[in-house]
Structure formats: structure tokens, C-alpha cells
Simulated scan of single mutants.
Amino acid sequence: MNKLNKFSPEVRERAVRMVQEHRGEYPSLWAAVESIAPKIGCVPQTLLEWVKRAEVDAGMRPGTTTAEAQRIKELEREIKELRRANDILRTASAFFAQAELDRKLKS
């Protein structure tokens, strides 16, 4: 399920920085990305995603930042664990309540 990252964070940062520094030399962002991507060894779409992610993280583009996305993921995981614990407790409570009723009836 986890995807293997072929590029280190340093390479990603360097590639994004190159696009941002040379963006004015090209007619569009896509043209800059198409020119720089082969130098890094990735496909242009991947580099464009890195640039967009960096812009969101820097507040230059609307969207969910990497830190916010990580926090949301952690909270969703915690909710899932709490729901599982509640189900276990609910089942155990019902089991012990039934056992208590059975015991009273036998007396």
C-alpha cells in the first residue's frame, strides 16, 4: 500500500527550487516543468505535483497543506481505534449484562 519514493526530499526541494527560479524564463509553468523534469530524471507531471504541493505548503496556493493532511490522517486513525474500542466495550457490556441476568434467573 505504501508507495516507494524514488526521489529523496532533497532532490524534490532542489527540483522545485529550480522551477521557481527559472519560471520567468518560460512562457508558462508547464513549459518550465517540461524543461527541468528530464534534468532531474522524473516525468513532468510528477514535478508539477511537487511544485503545486510546495506552493500549497507555502500558502501561495489554496489547499490542504502537508502538515494538515498528516494531522487529518492521524485523527482519522485515532477515530477508527476509538470506534473499535467502543464496539468491544459495547459487546463486552452486553455479554456481562446477559450473564448477570442468567445468574439471577438460576437463583
Results as ranks from 00 to 15, higher is better:
1 M>G: 13
2 N>L: 10
6 K>N: 09
7 F>V: 03
7 F>W: 15
8 S>R: 15
12 R>P: 02
12 R>C: 10
12 R>T: 03
13 E>N: 12
15 A>M: 10
17 R>D: 14
20 Q>A: 10
21 E>C: 01
22 H>F: 13
25 E>T: 05
28 S>M: 04
30 W>Y: 01
30 W>H: 07
34 E>H: 07
34 E>C: 10
34 E>R: 02
37 A>C: 05
38 P>G: 09
39 K>S: 05
41 G>C: 08
48 L>Y: 05
49 E>S: 06
50 W>Y: 11
51 V>L: 11
52 K>I: 01
53 R>D: 15
55 E>G: 03
59 G>E: 05
62 P>Y: 07
62 P>T: 11
64 T>P: 03
67 A>I: 10
69 A>P: 04
71 R>A: 14
71 R>Y: 08
72 I>Y: 10
72 I>N: 10
73 K>L: 07
74 E>W: 05
74 E>N: 11
75 L>S: 09
77 R>V: 09
80 K>R: 15
80 K>V: 04
81 E>I: 07
83 R>P: 02
85 A>Y: 02
86 N>L: 15
86 N>M: 07
87 D>Y: 11
88 I>K: 15
88 I>P: 08
89 L>R: 15
93 S>T: 13
95 F>V: 05
95 F>G: 00
96 F>E: 13
97 A>G: 02
98 Q>I: 01
101 L>P: 00
102 D>Q: 12
103 R>I: 03
